[in-house]
Write a protein that binds this DNA or RNA. Structure first.
Lengths: 157, 157
DNA sequence: AAATCATTGTTAGACGTCAAGCGATAAGTT
DNA sequence: AACTTATCGCTTGACGTCTAACAATGATTT
């Protein structure tokens, strides 16, 4: 279905750039919704899943700040989500000797077991939604989006 | 910058479909952030701008439910944002005779004046972020995203 | 060594989103 | 006409996000 129909527009979109931007935002919203539906079955939110998934594949030691950079959210958000995950016993904050300002964050055994259960379902989802895109199409999509992101951050960044 | 670098991944993404999905979500997040920064200058949030913008271009009479469909949010969300906009005097709820269940929503004079001020800046933003995409590239992008959205909603929908 | 600057994690408050459930009303059915 | 079902807008509570500010700590500079 075209974006016009989906958004129930009463006139055609005349600006293709505008349509492109709305498409991106709308698609991301739907992807999040689909993700949330899956994660809820495991008593997780999307943000909580993202933390577990990141931690599973990290190869070095991460502070909360590192996690925030990886997930592209503020430190305050990390604190909040980590509090939830810690209270569920899925994640641990480790004191770091030599630097009393930071914590190192890691999965607990329960956290690892849970993410190992969710991940295959998540990957199924991914391939379900992108099934109709062959490799060159994916590459083109990725490249276009990368260009958009470049123009999102002010030149001074 | 590639997604790998942006997300500070410690190993390359091996799954191009996964990379595509993350690109979409990440790009939408950045677009929202850029939008929020603009809207804040006018004491608006993104959600509030979306309502004003929709109302400006509607050509028929809309209920809150219609607005929700257009913006793809629940009725509860519409109620909440509309309360804020109404308290700022930017939007009005009109009683509908013949149907006491619904309201018709419209811009006030102040609402129209404000959206008229914000819109040119918004359109500048749009073209800034998509400047490097020519028309065929935009069309391909839009089409790919449309395919993803198709696969987001279960076949039964 | 002392003063300044930067980083880290936390808190508080505002906001939008959702799910679930509610009462009122409308529409459809028997 | 009476009953049933559907829709509408609202409320509540949970959640994640952000900004702004803060204290503690670390890093730099003087």
């Amino acid at each position: 279905m075209s974006l016009e129909q989906e958004l129930k527009l009463e006139r055609p979109m005349d600006d293709i750039h505008h349509e492109a931007v709305l498409s991106i935002v709308r698609t991301a919203g739907l992807l999040s919704l689909k993700g949330a539906t899956l994660f809820r079955q495991f008593d997780l939110t999307e943000a909580q899943f993202n933390v577990l998934f990141s931690l599973k594949y990290k190869e070095t030691v991460w502070t909360q700040s590192d996690l925030g950079k990886r997930l592209v959210v503020t430190r305050a958000s990390v604190t909040s989500v980590l509090d939830k995950l810690e209270s569920k016993g899925l994640v641990e904050r480790h004191v770091v000797e030599g630097n009393r300002r930071i914590y190192h964050v890691d999965l607990t055994k329960a956290g690892r077991e849970l993410i190992d259960k969710v991940e295959p379902r998540y990957r199924e989802n991914i391939h379900e939604v992108t099934a109709s895109l062959d490799r060159p199409t994916c590459e083109a999509l990725i490249q276009s989006l990368e260009r958009v992101r470049q123009n999102c951050t002010r030149p001074a960044d």
